[in-house]
Amino acid sequence: METVFADLSLGVKGPGLEAIFAYDKGGLESLVIGGRQQLYRCPSLAFWRATTDNDRGNGFSKKSALWMGADMFSIVTSYSVNVDGTELGKEELRAPGNNRLLDSPLRKAHEVSITFSHATCTNPAAEVRVTYSMSDDWDGVRVDYEYRGVEGLPSLPVCGIRFCLPYVVAGYDWQGLSGETYPDRLAGAQEGHWSIEGLPVTPYVIAQECGMHMGTQLVRFHHKDGGVLTIKAVDGCTINFQALPCSPLELEAAYHPIDLPLPRRTYITIAAAVRGVGGIDSWGSEPGPGYQIDAAGTYHTAFTLC
């Protein structure tokens, strides 16, 4: 792999992909797979889900409103790079430190990883680490996401990372569970290979959180021209994914599905933890205690993009 120690970015050119990590933006700024740009902006931390009717009824969104801000805004506190076992910090990576790397043997690497540490825009702040790793014998970027909670924060609507694709996928197919699944609504989901045409929003009369797929081994997003972006679980685990043509805040603001902006991009959330939907009633009952996300917990997910 070729590494590019640019003034504000780390570039990595690997087999079949090209990635640019922006120090100033604090994340994966560009990911070209199959000759196509896959990112509209850096991935963001996902902490909000559009209020469901049950969330509204039990007051969850009011109690957990600060996570809406945290979903919108988070702070990158530090970053570091590891190239074939050599740790590179901010001093080495940014100008003028990078001047020394122009002819470094690290420009040709077997393994590269970069970790961004985030503080949530909450008080107290929780920490989130996102590590992107590439190896010259892999065909993609591995993402390790870890949320490390603190006491004193309200229950989380969701906990994960969100990718915004600059195009609307023509459809997606996945290996995993049928239907839409939430931790308290898994029963009846069949293991198998499933597909959805287009990028629908489940048409609840009032737009809300929808479309979660838990227990997924692999999901492939299809470009209308035939390219594929694959997200694969690693280490024998599964992932939880959701693909929508709008952000949770756009969903939150829509009184009806027809109020949503015209689809222009694809928002893919990979959730390390998913809150249940509840269902006993719509005016007071929370999801069962095992189906809420304690903000003091630690949540991890890992997958590859290729």
Binding site: T52, D53, N54, E180, V205, Q208, C210, D281, P287
Partner: peptide, 12 residues
């Protein structure tokens, strides 16, 4: 029971 308003029926 199981008020199926919006995205619901968790815990059925």
């Amino acid at each position: 029971y199981m008020h199926c308003m919006g995205n619901s029926l968790g815990g059925f």
